[in-house]
């Protein structure tokens, strides 16, 4: 009977190795994403809310500054600038400026941090916060399309952020979708240069 047990164990070991390999491959995909970090890149952000009839949408440009601040400059429909520096988010609307900590809004904070980590290719930070689920399916219908699903390791974070889905094509990131409880979601789509009309910083 011992050989049966050995067989079972070897099967499990083989299977584990396969999962680990897959996981590593996904992490490698994220690490290899080519992203022009300091260059303004167009994005579209869509979010569902129980208060809204249809998901709200806004477009703009995003980039990472040399000092490490992540900036999302919303150009339409209501111009505003969001600057993430450590745990602080600075919002600028016209002449009004407002800073807030994101400690209460963990899901949004993690989403923003994840975008930064993805843009920076900082897999270690993502690995510290998420585990990869290879079950994600790519429905982007683009060539060399892929999808990676990240699940928060922190159970308290899972209460406000169920999962993060990254979709891409070859070594390009296409979108990042945060799914929250109650069928609510938020998605940031990276727009290809051809479809982007606004890649100039308003301060330039």
């Amino acid at each position: 009977m011992k050989w049966l047990a050995l067989l079972a164990l070897s099967t499990i070991l083989t299977s584990t190795t396969t999962v680990a390999e897959t996981t590593n491959r996904y992490w490698a995909t994220i690490a290899e994403l080519e992203f022009p970090r300091a260059t303004p890149t167009a994005f579209r952000e869509t979010r569902s809310s129980k208060l809204l009839r249809k998901p709200a949408q806004q477009t703009g440009i995003l980039w990472i500054e040399q000092g490490g601040d992540f900036v999302m400059q919303v150009l339409k429909p209501r111009p505003e600038e969001r600057r993430l520096s450590n745990q602080r988010l600075q919002l600028t609307r016209g002449k009004k400026q407002r800073s807030l900590f994101l400690d209460r809004n963990k899901a949004t904070h993690q989403l923003l941090l994840s975008i930064v980590a993805v843009l920076e290719g900082d897999v270690e930070q993502l690995q510290a916060a998420f585990e990869i689920n290879s079950q994600a399916t790519d429905d982007s219908a683009v060539a060399d399309g892929w999808a990676v699903e990240l699940t928060p390791i922190d159970p308290s974070l899972r209460k406000s952020l169920q999962r993060l889905v990254l979709r891409g094509s070859a070594n390009s990131l296409l979108s990042l979708r945060a799914e929250r409880p109650g069928n609510r979601w938020q998605e940031i789509t990276i727009l290809p240069p051809a479809t982007s009309n606004h890649t100039q910083r308003s301060s330039d």
């Binding site: 809310s49 806004q58 429909p77």
Partner: peptide, 18 residues
């Protein structure tokens, strides 16, 4: 319109407040 911008970053608390 201003609240729409807030909603892009709002958590449940802020949505209830709005």
């Amino acid at each position: 319109d201003e609240r729409m911008s807030d909603l892009m970053l709002a958590d449940d608390d802020l949505q209830n407040l709005i």
